[in-house]
Amino acid sequence: MSVAAERLPEAIVCAAIEWQMRLRDHAGGEVHEQLQEWLGRDARHRLAWQRLQQMGGLFQASQLPDAAYTIPLLRRAEADLGRRRTLKLLGFGLVAGGATLLVTQTSPTWRADFATATGERRRISLGAAAEVVLNTGSALDVEGQELILRAGEALVEGADWHARCRFATCQGRDASVLLRERDDYSEIRVQRGEVLVSTATGQLRLRVGDGVGVSAAGTTTLGQGSIDPFAWARGLLVVSDIRLADFLAEAGRYRKGWLGCDAAVADLHLSGVFRLDEPEVMLRNITHLLPVRIVERTRWWVRVMPVA
């Protein structure tokens, strides 16, 4: 894969966004020097910065639009190069001569029969056969007797149901299953009953506590992990001995904007039970559990830093 076509790690993309915001707030020579030093450390830093500036050009403005737009758009586009490809991914058009955005085509999430916004959870009753709980930023279609997860995460339960995700189909009777679309695979976990999973390479039967990741390359058994995969349906984020960076990545799904941490505290570990409907309280609680502080440059940009 060429450098130009490389898919960048989210941490690097978010760091580039952070530098853009620093330049907005402090345009002095010191910040420019620090930026140049960061760019010189890694070719991927330079690539992320280049792509971010090209995103700015898409809006025909001297700088990117408000962070409320910039961060989710860039993350959703996965920092891809190319005007047409980026616009197709984002589903947005431009207003000539300005940085205002307007919808010109409908995204898969908006076209879905059922969808949730960032931070929203929704319970959907589909009659006697099945009930679905959609997690934050998710989309679900119903085609006849089949449920199709288009994006995000869903908990499907009921007496008799069929569900499809990107890499597999599932069938359950008196069963409950979690489906989550990751970047490169579909995650399937059984909470109750027994589920028949069909993939491109065959079928497997999952029972309570089983979990698999299904991708184009095959099927992988998933361990329990540091996050309770079913707790979100109860409005909770339950973690056990999780890295702070991984905790923030999960918590960031439930709030708008960017949420990250300094590399100095990324590997700190924490455990606890947090309420998803109180994201600001969740962040404050971290400061009681770990030697960290919260830095908010805007309501859309939050970074966890070491205690000074």
Results as ranks from 00 to 15, higher is better:
residue 48 A to N: 03
residue 235 G to C: 14
residue 59 F to W: 10
residue 5 A to W: 09
residue 47 L to W: 08
residue 52 L to W: 06
residue 290 L to S: 06
residue 220 T to E: 15
residue 291 P to D: 08
residue 230 F to G: 01
residue 93 G to L: 14
residue 60 Q to E: 15
residue 242 I to Y: 10
residue 85 R to V: 13
residue 253 R to D: 02
residue 300 W to S: 11
residue 69 Y to N: 05
residue 208 V to C: 08
residue 226 S to M: 10
residue 272 G to I: 05
residue 5 A to D: 15
residue 56 G to K: 06
residue 175 A to V: 04
residue 168 A to M: 07
residue 263 A to N: 04
residue 154 A to K: 04
residue 266 A to R: 12
residue 70 T to H: 01
residue 298 T to A: 07
residue 175 A to N: 08
residue 208 V to N: 07
residue 268 L to T: 00
residue 4 A to C: 06
residue 120 E to T: 10
residue 171 Q to T: 14
residue 177 V to A: 00
residue 303 R to I: 05
residue 221 T to N: 06
residue 206 L to A: 03
residue 176 S to G: 12
residue 96 A to T: 03
residue 201 T to E: 07
residue 76 R to N: 05
residue 212 V to Y: 08
residue 258 W to Q: 14
residue 42 D to K: 01
residue 29 G to T: 14
residue 278 E to C: 09
residue 107 S to F: 02
residue 197 V to F: 02
residue 267 D to W: 01
residue 81 L to W: 09
residue 231 A to P: 02
residue 53 Q to H: 12
residue 169 T to I: 05
residue 276 L to Y: 05
residue 17 I to N: 03
residue 88 K to C: 03
residue 43 A to W: 06
residue 46 R to M: 06
residue 258 W to F: 08
residue 151 A to Y: 04
residue 115 A to K: 04
residue 103 V to Q: 13
residue 235 G to A: 13
residue 168 A to R: 10
